[in-house]
Amino acid sequence: MGHNPETVQQMNETPPIYTNAKKRWVDRMVFLTPFLKNRKALTGLILFFVFIFVAIFAHWIAPYSPANTNFMMSLGPTSKHLFGTTNTGQDIFSEFIFGARTTIVVGFGAGLIATFLGLLIGITAGYRGGWIDSILTFLMNLFLVLPGLALLIVIESYVKNSSPYTNGIIIGLTGWAWGARVFRAQTMSLVNRDFVVAAKMSGKSDLNIMFTEISPNMMSIIAANVIYATLGAVLAESGLAFLGIEDINSISWGTMLYWASQSGAMLTGAWWWIIPPGLGIGLVGLSLVLMNFAIDSITNPRLSSQKRRRHRVKQQSTTTSTSA
């Protein structure tokens, strides 16, 4: 991130607004290239799109309805039932496919909500400063420190039998703190730059500056945050569903594991019931982590300059500088 010559240039030329927008759009496409260059990131991207594809076309991919209970019970994997059946005669493969839809929608949705809230709170805190900043920073630190899952469980206990989607909204509403903190720091480093000062002098409103001047300059950390928030949301949703706090009749990977452990899949040796949902969650998580490698190389341009100076550091710093 850091210095952004384009913005400064645009300001000097004062181009009409539409070309401005066009240029930014191209910028965002350029921002995709690291995904294609980095092998890990590409793998992550492909994996992620596979799950998106599955989620969208679940109706066509799944051989049966996930609610259908007319099959033989507790079958191991066969050619008719790729992942076997449950002890109430549901086809696990179909459940898995529809579960992917729930997980992707809930995870991504919650990730977007959390990022948007974080952006709103973080930029406001960084831009306004003063006592607003103090209060918002306290809130951020509070939400960072409180164990998220425990808080979610307590909230869910009052919202009975929530669907996965309500759950996603709640997860999004509580998971903004990390993003807010990063955005606040970034805003503080941007707020005294010339282009912001110029925008202020030209009479732009504060809200306008926050959204058209500051936030476009942190596109890559916003993207990184969406990824992390999504990962967190996927894990949180499946955890809540596994504990049986979500509506147990919904179809999601967490609920599958809830039923598997409730009906003693472990004790009957029904490994085919336990492995797929968890592996699904893990693979979605892995795809997100891998994509983050690419984002990281954009967020942290210093890594590439270090490469030139210090040969020893060369490869590691590009491979594993995530998960900070």
């Binding site: 969650i281 998580g285 982590v289």
Partner: peptide, 18 residues
Amino acid sequence: TMGIQALPYFWVALLFLF
């Protein structure tokens, strides 16, 4: 280790238990 971290805790626990 990062791969393990992407897996859900409780699922790893279930596998260990199994």
